[in-house]
Simulated assay, not measured.
Amino acid sequence: MSLFPTEMESERLRYERLHPDEFDVDELYEYVHAGAPGIDEITKYVTWDSHQHPKESFDWVEHCGEQFDDGVAATYALRPTEGDRAGELAGFAGIHPDWDRRLAVFGAWLRKPFWGRGYSGERAARMLEFAFDRLDLEMVAVAHDPDNEQSRRAIEKYVERFGGRKEGRIRNDIVIDDEPRDSIRYSISRAEWERNRD
């Protein structure tokens, strides 16, 4: 039995756990290796680098599988269920609960062909439901690099929709390219979400 569901769905997306029992490492490596289309734009503002060889992809899938099995965190592959790219790997969504603080931290990234389709907000709505209804947490937090305008716009849109707030700048919160960077953090409480859920 698992604490996290192995699969979920929302209006246009399917969520499949990232786990070595089900996920094809070659598919991941195809999209995240150095030189893959759009990878430099994707990794510019995230805390991981493009993969230099398939073993890096293998190790990440193994790590995510262990976290899932241990109830530490869940990472899901996102796949559209309709349209011209139905079934294709669009990106990933993660949830990292801090059980003592009754808090979940969200993370996500999408491949460039899937930017601008509203998937970030749809994913956030589904993951908020998961965090509050299934995991019984009280707060969700999400952050972005201060220079990442695309993430800022997407996050602010769904944070406003669900009644959350911008907490502010956290200095030296993340490391990108071996350099400490600030982050901009937002939060949504269970009460705010319940007042604004659809």
Score class of each variant (00 low, 15 high):
R117S: 07
F130S: 02
S57P: 09
R14V: 01
H63G: 05
V25E: 13
H51P: 08
S183T: 15
D173G: 09
L137D: 04
G164M: 03
L103F: 00
E7N: 09
I95R: 03
L3Q: 11
A125Y: 05
R117G: 06
I39N: 06
R14D: 04
A143N: 13
H63S: 11
E7M: 06
Q52L: 13
Q67P: 00
E11G: 12
A77N: 11
D98S: 08
G164C: 07
G168K: 11
V175Y: 10
D59T: 00
E138H: 15
E129M: 05
C64R: 14
R197G: 05
G116K: 02
A191N: 14
D40I: 02
L13V: 02
R169L: 07
L110T: 07
E11I: 02
G38I: 05
R161H: 12
W48V: 07
D40M: 04
R181T: 13
E27Y: 00
Y158I: 09
S57R: 10
Y186C: 08
A141D: 11
F92D: 06
L18G: 08
Y31I: 03
L137W: 02
E194Q: 15
H144G: 06
P5S: 06
I174K: 12
R126W: 03
G65P: 00
S187F: 02
F68Q: 09
G35S: 03
H144A: 02
F58Y: 15
V25T: 14
R101Y: 04
A125H: 08
W48A: 05
Y31W: 05
R79S: 11
K112Q: 15
R17N: 04
L128H: 03
E30I: 00
E27M: 11
S57F: 07
R126D: 06
R79P: 09
H53D: 15
Y119T: 03
P37W: 00
R152M: 10
E56G: 10
D84S: 13
E22N: 14
E22F: 14
V25L: 02
E56D: 14
R181P: 10
Q67F: 04
P20L: 01
P97L: 01
F162D: 01
V72G: 04
G87D: 02
A154Q: 01
W115G: 04
E156N: 10
W48P: 09
T47L: 05
A143H: 12
R126P: 06
H19E: 00
F106D: 01
A143P: 03
D145S: 12
A125D: 08
L103M: 08
R111L: 13
S2C: 04
P180Y: 13
D147Q: 15
R126H: 09
Y15K: 04
L13E: 03
I176T: 12
A191L: 13
L128W: 01
S151L: 06
R101D: 12
P20C: 01
G168P: 10
D198G: 11
S10T: 07
G83Y: 10
G107D: 11
N196D: 07
E56F: 05
W99F: 08
